[in-house]
Every structure is written in C-alpha cells, then in structure tokens.
C-alpha cells in the first residue's frame, strides 16, 4: 500500500478515501494469509470472504463509505455490517431469481452509467455473498464433546470487538449433565447444541474482560469448571495514515503491521509463558491451582519492518514471531 493522505474522520469513525479502500483491504488480507490463524481465531475463510466483499473492485460503491476503527485500524463495525445486511438480502428467498439480467443491466448502463455500474456491482456482490459466509458481529456455537459423568461442552463465541478487532473465545467446560436438560442447552443435531440466549448475552458482556474474571463469571453462571479457555484476537492493524497508539514501536511507523494475539488458560502447566511484546501480563495475576496462562502475539509486517520489529520484541523481553506480509493474489487482482 503506498503512502497516503490522512483518512478523514467522521464522528468516532475514520473514513478511507474510496481509492484507498481496495489496497487497505488487500493488505489486511495479505496479513491474514501470512499469519494463517488457526481455529482459536475467527475462521480465516469467513474473514477473507468478508474483506473481498468490501473491496470496491467487487462491490463498487455499494458498501461505501469505507469506515475504519481509529483505535485498531480494523474495518469498522458499520462497514462490516453493511456487507452482512447485503448478504441477508442476497440470500432471501427469490433474491437470486429477481436479480437483473445482463440485458437489464446493459439498459440501465445506457440510461444512467453511474446507476448501471452500481446495479452491476450490487448484482456481482450478491452472487459473491451467496457463495460463502461472512464474519458475524456476534455468534455463539456450542458442541457436546463427550457425555458421561460430566457433559463436556465446547463454546465458541465470535465477535467483532468494540474496537474493531476480531475476537474468538473458546471455552471448554465440564458441566453437570443436568445442564443438557435444564434449558441452558438444547440438542440440535449430532453433537451440535443450541445455547440459551442468556449465555450469548453473558459472553457479549464479558468478551473483553480479563481472562481470569471471564473464567470465574462463566463458571458461576454455568455451575461447572472451565477446563480450558482461550481468547484469540485478530488486530490491531497498523497502516500508514493511522495514528499509532502511544508506545508503538518506531519500526511500525509507515509500515503495515497486523497483530494476532492469543491468551490461553489451561491445565497444561508446561504451556505457561508470555510471548507478547506489546502488552505486559496483568499485575498480580494468579491462575487457579493446576492451571497456567500462555500469551503470545505474532505479527505480520511489511518486509522492511520485520527485522526491526523482531529486535523490538527481543528488547521487550518477549521474543515473538514476525512474518513478512507479501502481496497475494485475490481473485485476479493483487495487492
């Protein structure tokens, strides 16, 4: 992404000029490809699909303006939501059949070129949106891993965090089997469970609270121990033109830097560790007996910033993985 004038600010949001939206999205997609997040993070396919839907190369100005969260540099909530709402319209019964055909699009373009271009973009966007899922603003999925003396349940909660980061909580629980019958969960099919709405509300309330407080809130609400808990976050994404937070490494200035952060509480004591050069561990944090906390932050950065950022992480006492962020082909276009 070449350097840029400052994005404009509207209210609490930050609007990218139209010509910068595509390069910004492709840079973010390249960062995701480089970091290859696993299943402790929101699904990569959904994230990439969402980014591609927002790209003006596909959707023209249908989803404009390109709003970015000024705190995290991630796509703004309202921008993401516009794509989600379009996806709902695209998947509505009869939507595909009601789409304008080539002839109608050509007629519209002849009558009003700008309108024709927008109708064409909306049609292409709807076809694309029907082909795959997008990131949800909030989503809770529950699965029964094993049922015996305890009902082992895995909760996966995804959310676009208040500051725009993409967050996933994975919570392994060993619940009393009665929880499967008291209305907290309903069996859907196979191992899939449907969680009560109150549980999703609880996780929305606590999604960003410190790990141990989150653990005790979930345990108190469900009357069962949390065996393993992880919070995976994608973002912030620092890019030229975004005001960097205080304390950001000098090497990040003028560079592209995408963060991938993982916090994990588990019974694997050997897994304890802190490899996050950006955030120190909370003071006076004491994991419950037999459990350990592991934190890691990996970075994808512009090639020129990789070595300086690695050196910065070493100097911060938490050496981390920094991978180069390289252009990737997205459809027929590249970064």
């Amino acid at each position: 992404m070449s350097d840029p004038g400052p994005p404009s600010s509207s209210g609490a949001g930050l609007d990218l000029p139209a010509e910068r939206a595509g390069p910004y999205l492709r840079a973010l997609a390249a960062g995701l490809h480089a970091l290859a997040p696993h299943d402790a993070f929101v699904p990569l396919a959904e994230a990439l699909h969402h980014l591609q839907a927002l790209d003006p190369a596909l959707s023209g100005d249908v989803l404009a303006p390109a709003a970015v969260d000024p705190r995290s540099g991630m796509p703004g909530w309202t921008w993401l939501e516009r794509a989600r709402a379009e996806a709902e319209l695209a998947r509505a019964p009869g939507a595909a059949e009601g789409e304008p055909g080539e002839e109608e699009l050509a007629r519209a373009a002849a009558l009003d070129p700008a309108l024709g271009a927008r109708l064409q973009a909306r049609t292409a966007l709807h076809r694309f949106l029907r082909a795959g899922p997008l990131l949800p603003l909030t989503r809770l999925e529950a699965a029964l891993r094993r049922e015996g003396r305890t009902a082992d349940v895995l909760l996966t909660y995804d959310r676009v965090a208040p500051d725009g980061r993409w967050l996933r909580l994975r919570i392994d629980l060993a619940l009393p089997p009665t929880r499967l019958r008291d209305g907290t969960f309903h069996r859907r099919d196979g191992a899939r469970l449907e969680a009560a709405a109150g549980l999703q509300h609880l996780l929305t309330r606590h999604a960003t609270t410190p790990l141990l407080a989150l653990q005790s809130s979930v345990e108190a609400a469900l009357s069962g121990p949390v065996v393993r808990l992880s919070r995976g976050e994608i973002g912030p994404f620092w890019f030229p033109g975004l005001a960097l937070p205080e304390g950001a490494p000098a090497a990040a200035r003028g560079a592209l830097v995408l963060h991938l952060a993982l916090e994990q509480l588990s019974g694997e004591a050997h897994a304890a560790g802190h490899r996050d050069p950006w955030l120190p561990p909370p003071p006076h944090e004491r994991p419950p007996p037999g459990m350990a906390i592991f934190r890691e932050r990996r970075l994808a950065a512009s090639p020129a910033a990789v070595d300086p950022l690695r050196a910065w992480s070493v100097a911060a006492g938490a050496e981390t993985i920094v991978v180069p962020l390289r252009p990737v082909a997205v459809g027929t276009r590249s970064l």
């Binding site: 516009r82 319209l89 909306r122």
Partner: peptide
C-alpha cells in the same frame, strides 16, 4: 446486557436500510 439487544435491533434496522438503498436505485432507474 443491553448491548446484545441493541446489536440485534441495529442489524434489523441496517437490513431495512440496505433494502431502502436498493429501492432508491430502483426508483432512479
């Protein structure tokens, strides 16, 4: 706690607004 409810309402309103936006284009055509 209010947030989850407001998110759901916001999404519903946003959907109606997208429908209205598409409808505006239909009027223009």
């Amino acid at each position: 706690s209010v947030t989850e409810g407001l998110i759901a309402r916001y999404q519903a309103a946003s959907l109606q607004l997208r429908r209205a936006t598409a409808f505006t284009d239909e009027l223009r055509l």
